[in-house]
Design a protein around this nucleic acid. Structure first.
Lengths: 159, 159
DNA sequence: ATAAACATTGAAAAAATTTGCGTGAATGAT
DNA sequence: ATCATTCACGCAAATTTTTTCAATGTTTAT
């Protein structure tokens, strides 16, 4: 059951960063990442992830529905599905060089940045927050692994 | 050609007010309204209307995207959706390492950052906007040339 | 530890969707 | 008016997606 979770995560990433036009195409990309499943399984996975299939004049593309909007709609309709992933508004964490980019649900970025600032962690030189994104500048020499370690105090990191 | 326009309009209304789960089902409802076409034509019509196919726990449903989502999906699929007029807010583009700094006329930064975000381009990890400046963090390994290429979808760049 | 209940998946079949091709109607340019 | 283009659309083939069926794990409760 861990296998499936990992695959779903990978599928999300792949679908988000590529123009996937068919399930077999997705299967090939997954295979490159070492994940081998049949197209039938992907049909089930895409359904589980609620991935949309949207046409444009060129062809058809799978699209991961926007997580913020997805969640906002849930709230709007009175439902509330708070998974561990969504606790604290956290959406995703990525790095580029000595910059950490933390995506949050709308409105949560400021509070999260504040918490990071208040920790006065030496690994972080400073932060800037928009509505749903936090930039944290890491001190030179700090590894991404160390940063993950630090941030895990504030956000649920799957690892 | 008037026939087609009427049909498209009717399709919109039907899809919006019913849970259509297949094109043949749609064909039947159309027939009740006196419009007779083959499923193949509906495939083309749904594509023309950019109707999304979205899964939910029950099954699959066709969904007419609202105007906003329509716009967002255009960006998502990599098509330009802002007119030359709208690009007038652009002032300058500069780079520092993997950070792109886009200057705009006052008030334009937020909108531009939003468009960049909605494109979900894998080259960009995230953006933050002030009143007249957008920061865009590039994924590691993305060259400035690639970034210029990407941004040319949103702003007028002379290469 | 064992049985019952549940979950995951592949293979193949079924269902649904997309597309190539051909025809006829509509539009346009000369 | 004539000829060339373009557009709409059915048919049938090709492709893609969904689902059924069985086999094979996993989990849970006793």
């Amino acid at each position: 059951m861990k296998r499936k979770q990992n695959r779903l995560k990978l599928i999300k990433r792949i679908v988000r960063n590529n123009s996937i036009t068919s399930q077999s195409e997705l299967a090939q990309l997954l295979e490159k990442e070492g994940v081998v499943v049949t197209q039938a399984t992907l049909s089930r996975d895409l359904k589980a992830l609620r991935v949309n299939k949207v046409p444009n004049e060129t062809g058809y593309v799978y699209v991961i529905p926007d997580e913020n909007k997805q969640h906002d709609n849930l709230l709007k309709t009175g439902q509330r599905s708070v998974t561990a992933q969504q606790q604290l508004g956290f959406v995703s964490l990525q790095f580029s060089g000595n910059l950490a980019v933390i995506k949050t649900r709308n409105g949560y970025a400021t509070g999260l940045a504040y918490d990071i600032d208040m920790s006065e962690a030496p690994e972080v030189l400073g932060t800037i927050a928009g509505a749903d994104t936090v930039f944290a500048i890491l001190r030179e020499g700090v590894t991404q692994e160390q940063a993950r370690q630090l941030f895990s105090r504030f956000i649920p990191i799957d690892k």
